[in-house]
Design a binder for these strands. Structure first.
Lengths: 346, 346
DNA sequence: ATTAGCACTCTCCACAAGCAAGTGCCATTC
DNA sequence: GAATGGCACTTGCTTGTGGAGAGTGCTAAT
């Protein structure tokens, strides 16, 4: 019992229609309404029997004895996994999408635009993680002396992003020494990807110890301090306020929880990290996410890639009752366009 | 008619008690309840008469015929302007405040912490504008070549903040030329305040034209492109979600408007800019702000200064019914502590 | 297996009654 | 004449009732 094998085609078709109707209307769906979909081939009474089965399987439930039925998270899951017929993107949406994402702009700009596009088109919340900079190339590094022995490290990747960090080396350096160290690092490492730079930094000291002079060692040590850090993940969220318009999310306490999760970021990031593992579109429906704040929400995500390397996740957050048929292809296409827009070759 | 001169001491005292009671309870205040404050020196009937006067003057109103009275924005205004007795800060609040703000940290960190402190202590929303960098000193400037003639300008102020901007000079420079230009600018302008650098850049070209060689002119032109821009104002907001707990703000449409205003920033910035003109604590009560989204909110702000120069605004946003007696001194003190924390001399 | 019929359950709405809070007004008091 | 006590009145909130509507589950018939 409780296995979808039990379900014949008719039951599945019925579930499909029920979910579609509920997504459209937001009202519990009754047997009479569903019967209309079947051109009087099936009477309401029969449908009631089938619905009773579906309820027993945990796919649908009724909010009270004499209301229609509503899909459960499991019901939605079955729907998106096997029943759903995706709708191709409308032409105007596609043009709106590419219009925003195909202009060559600042990197962070593109990410922000993608997030905004996601929320604008869906009228829900859009989210895009900042692309991992592992594969970005180091183009320039610079050390500036601060007070109290501290050193401000500035490094630029891929002609675009500027990162900076304050480090505290164990010994004091003169401005000239810092300049030398930067010159050395720029000559040796510029043009290589950050991840390879990191790897080399970590191994070089042991291997080539004798070949290096003190200045080089100092430079390498400082670069390690600057580059080998936990890279703090982050994301750009837009259209959160759209979520305030859904009656499903009108409970203020829940909504507050949700917005606090958005602000604190860490649970959202954890959730998005799970999406990084599998390529392509992934979906969390309601309680599936495992986070209380997202209990009433669904999350449709996709990884996006630059040069076949996954660099981030993007997605749409909305109520569980969302038009999955449209959202899924939309998220998919947006991810591909964002990947393309981020590709430096263009 | 409608002039506060009409009011005798007793009426004012009554208004004061009424506002205080309403701030505490959130319930319309009736004549009977107010009578208790006066130790039976005044009967409810008398108080009713006085309240009728206050209502005619537009200082209070009743939500319906037979409820108690609630202060209007004008009533609150009179209260904060002339009736309010500020409460000194509780010791623990003060210690919490100084604990967070007295550690010498990153500049942007301090601003974020201040915002967080404001919201944590008040359980409302805290807001702090990013300090204007006019008076900050230029400590280092750097040009890096990008593709398509573009140049990435990085400049560091006051040993702390790193700013970067992509400019597009009219001619192409070699890396060596860029290095030279940066060297020249660093030798001449490092240590001077950004505003003075800007002034000099704008005038030097006319005045000392003959004394400068081409390289210097190029350097000055690029510096102008980088430094003479509209400085985009911004702020750090925290604890917005606290606002979701107030029943006064539980109307979802209004709340949505408010959060959208927070996200779009420009109307909030306009509002905060108004506070820059006058020193010290300023208050907008409800509709006084002139922005629909803030109709149900009050904003208590104060400018904060570094070296007697006003560099920003900070404040607290909450429902009109807030404990002004505590919030006002709290905002005042926080502003002073933030100013001190930002002072590079320490 | 499917269907028609029917009793049952539950929500929603409207309306009324009773209660509590508080007012406005008037006649009275000091 | 200002302050007060008394009283009728208004209003919102709560509770209860009753009917309409929607949808179900069960049973008997096809």
């Amino acid at each position: 019992m409780g296995n979808s094998q039990n379900l014949n085609d008719r039951s599945l078709q019925l579930l499909k229609n029920l979910v579609e109707r509920y997504i459209q209307s937001g009202q519990p769906v009754g047997s009479k309404a569903l019967a209309q979909d079947f051109d009087a081939k099936l009477s309401p009474a029969t449908i009631r029997n089938v619905m009773a089965d579906l309820e027993e399987l945990g796919l649908i439930y009724s909010p009270h004895h004499s209301a229609g039925r509503i899909p459960t998270a499991t019901g939605y899951r079955l729907f998106v996994d096997s029943l759903l017929t995706v709708k191709p993107l409308a032409a105007q949406e596609l043009s709106y999408l590419s219009q925003g994402l195909e202009n060559p702009n600042d990197n962070t700009d593109v990410v922000a635009i993608a997030s905004k596009v996601l929320s604008d088109v869906t009228q829900m919340a859009g989210i895009v993680t900042i692309p991992r900079r592992e594969m970005a190339c180091l183009s320039h590094i610079e050390f500036l002396p601060l007070s109290h022995n501290r050193v401000l490290v500035i490094f630029v990747t891929d002609e675009q992003e500027v990162h900076n960090k304050i480090i505290q080396p164990s010994k004091t350096f003169s401005p000239a020494e810092l300049q030398q160290a930067a010159n050395y690092l720029n000559s040796v490492y510029a043009g290589r990807s950050l991840s390879s730079v990191r790897d080399v930094l970590l191994t070089q000291m042991q291997q080539d110890h004798q070949k290096l002079n003190q200045g080089m060692l100092d430079a390498i040590n400082m670069a390690k301090l600057a580059l080998v850090d936990e890279q703090k993940e982050d994301y750009v969220l837009s259209g959160e306020t759209n979520l305030m318009s859904f009656s499903e999310l009108s409970d203020m306490d829940r909504l507050k929880q949700l917005f606090e999760a958005f602000n604190q970021k860490h649970s959202v990031i954890q959730l998005l990290d799970q999406c990084l593992t599998a390529d392509g579109v992934q979906i969390f429906i309601g309680e599936e996410s495992g986070y209380q704040a997202f209990e009433q929400c669904s999350l449709v995500t996709s990884t996006y890639s630059v040069n076949d390397e996954v660099v981030g996740v993007l997605g749409v957050i909305g109520p569980t009752r969302m038009a999955y048929q449209k959202i899924i292809p939309f998220v998919d296409v947006t991810a591909k366009l964002l990947g393309a827009a981020l590709n430096p070759k263009s």
